[in-house]
């Protein structure tokens, strides 16, 4: 285990203590700073709820934990990429690390089989539409909420009653898209609106030189494909000797850069180095 990996794990542990009850030190600190006694669990932080509240007109209160967190998240995504996903989100990390325990032959490469980007953003649109058309799924299909249940259950010794939607979430998040998936981040790729929002913001931020992004130096690339194998999100692919990058599905975790022996990939400021057709643009294929 290299230093980069140790830092990642420590970051996820920090995220666990910062955002999830019974600890939730981030929410507790922010609540004290705001002078109120807001709830200190993942729901008060959850970036999905303020998104819906703003959209449905339920809340225009700016100074609450949810809205402040959303603004911080969007700002961080613009300047640094999906920082929260890459370094702090314990609920994204758990299935990723669990999937490493599963032999490769039992795992499905979801991202290679089904392009995650349209589903990811389709789900994001559906998520925002759901309160108007069907019923909000903010807490029904929530891996954050289930992660908190696991932590609280571990501390208190009882996970408590689970609804059918929570059970389905666990099956998708930890099972089908978790341990059974290459990279273990199928849920992040397809069904996380927070990740989708961050990647969308990052795709805009990455166009500017002063922001942090995944940079590529094609002349250094020796086509070893180690980065493609390492990417848990399936954001990198290799076809006809060309390395392609899908910014809309990247969490900038930097594992690809860590495994690149030739330093062709790096996380930093400056030009991205990706060809336009490889930088998140869908491939055009003409068929008679």
């Amino acid at each position: 285990m290299n230093q980069r990996e140790i830092k990642r794990i420590l970051g996820y542990f920090a995220g666990l203590f910062l955002f999830f009850a019974p600890f939730a030190y981030y929410q507790k600190t922010l609540s004290v700073w705001l002078g109120g006694s807001q709830a200190s669990d993942i729901h008060s932080f959850c970036l999905r709820i303020p998104l819906l509240n703003v959209l449905t007109g339920q809340s225009i209160e700016i100074f609450n934990v949810g809205i402040i967190s959303l603004l911080l998240l969007v700002s961080a995504a613009f300047f640094l990429g999906p920082f929260f996903c890459a370094h702090l989100c314990a609920s994204g990390a758990l299935p990723e690390y669990l999937s490493r325990l599963m032999p490769k032959r039992f795992k499905i490469d979801w991202q290679r089989s089904v392009n995650p980007v349209p589903i990811r953003y389709g789900f994001f649109v559906g998520y925002l539409l759901s309160p108007f058309l069907a019923g909000s799924i903010a807490c029904a299909l929530c891996n954050y909420s289930f992660m908190e249940r696991l932590i609280v259950g571990g501390v208190q010794g009882d996970i408590g009653p689970l609804g059918s939607t929570a059970i389905i979430t666990a099956i998708l998040w930890l099972g089908i898209f978790g341990v059974m998936a290459k990279g273990g981040r199928g849920f992040c790729s397809y069904l996380c609106p927070v990740g989708a929002l961050q990647s969308a913001v990052h795709s805009v931020g990455a166009r500017f030189r002063f922001t942090y992004k995944l940079r590529f130096i094609p002349s250094k690339c020796v086509n070893c494909k180690q980065c493609v194998k390492k990417c848990p999100m399936g954001a990198l692919s290799h076809k006809d000797g060309i390395l392609s990058y899908e910014v809309y599905n990247c969490i900038t975790c930097g594992q690809c850069a860590g495994v690149c022996a030739k330093n062709a990939l790096a996380y930093g400021t400056g030009e991205s180095g990706w060809q336009k057709e490889n930088a998140g643009e869908p491939e055009l294929e003409l068929v008679k």
Partner: peptide
């Protein structure tokens, strides 16, 4: 444009899944 067509189909799948889950909830 084949990839656009498949992307559109997958986009609809994503939207439908979210709305369908709302109804299931």
């Amino acid at each position: 444009k084949k990839s656009y067509l498949s992307s559109l189909m997958l986009l609809i799948v994503g939207i439908s899944f979210a709305l369908g889950f709302g109804y299931y909830k």
